[in-house]
């Protein structure tokens, strides 16, 4: 059969297969995201833990730093990002640990889809959780400290920063849960390599909060974009070797 296909016919067939493969890939990603969101909607254990933890961190900062008006102006973005980073590791670790414990990861790996689709699915659902936490923490912080954090620039930076953090975090979390010391491994692995994304996010957020000129903020935003692109690409390429059995 195959031999009878002429070259252009084979090329046409290839072309026909191409979009369906992309569609299949997207469908697989969506399926993983949907599974995570549905499970979370039922149990709410991950989001509630992340949220309570984030609010506690802010509370502790309040006592540790005495967030009065002048201090607040200079440390707000730092406090926010430390909070997001801590809550983020909590969520990343838990979301991968659930997969590992219930044997879901093995099930997912058996599914006839590209493994990077599993990575993107997990990353997107982790990102959604992180963004939900941020969407609650930002107004809460504004309310508690009477500063307006709802600012389009800041929201953009928050999204960009979270993408980078989650992109690396999902990859490293899937390694961390497969080690003997899995409960403590993720922050140790993640924080040193997430420094650029945290630094750039803090600096860019601070710029937007203090209303600095765009020229002073743009280098940090560009850095965030570069980081996001590089690490999504790296995770895409290496996720296979992380879950290979």
């Amino acid at each position: 059969m195959k031999k009878s296909l002429t070259v252009p016919a084979a090329a046409a067939l290839e072309k026909q297969k191409q979009p369906s493969r992309v569609a299949g890939f997207l469908k697989a990603i969506l399926a993983v995201v949907w599974k995570d969101l549905a499970a979370e909607l039922r149990s709410r254990e991950l989001l509630s833990a992340m949220l309570v933890f984030a609010l506690l961190v802010i509370l502790i900062f309040n006592f540790a730093l005495e967030l009065d008006l002048p201090t607040r102006r200079s440390v707000t973005s730092g406090v926010l990002w430390v909070t997001f980073a801590f809550a983020g590791t909590l969520g990343l670790n838990r979301s991968m640990a659930i997969e590992k414990d219930r044997g879901c990861l093995d099930g997912l790996l058996l599914a006839p889809v590209d493994r990077s689709a599993i990575y993107f699915g997990k990353a997107i659902s982790n990102l959604v959780f992180m963004l939900i936490v941020e969407a609650i923490v930002l107004p809460a912080y504004s309310l508690l400290y009477n500063t307006n954090l709802i600012n389009p620039g800041l929201i953009g930076v928050t999204i960009l920063g979270s993408i980078g953090y989650v992109a690396v975090g999902t990859l490293l979390a899937s390694m961390a849960v497969q080690t003997r010391t899995r409960d403590i491994m993720l922050p140790i692995l993640l924080f040193p390599v997430a420094i650029p994304v945290l630094l750039a996010s803090v600096k860019a957020s601070e710029g937007f909060l203090q209303g600095l000129a765009g020229a002073e903020i743009m280098p940090w935003v560009n850095l965030l974009i570069v980081y996001d692109v590089i690490f999504i690409a790296v995770a895409f390429m290496t996720f296979d070797s992380v879950v290979e059995e």
Binding site: M175, I195, V234
Partner: peptide, 14 residues
């Protein structure tokens, strides 16, 4: 190997 790769890309950006 994966972690070293991630680290060796992140350190120059840092």
């Amino acid at each position: 190997a994966v972690y070293t790769l991630v680290g060796s890309l992140s350190v120059p950006i840092a």
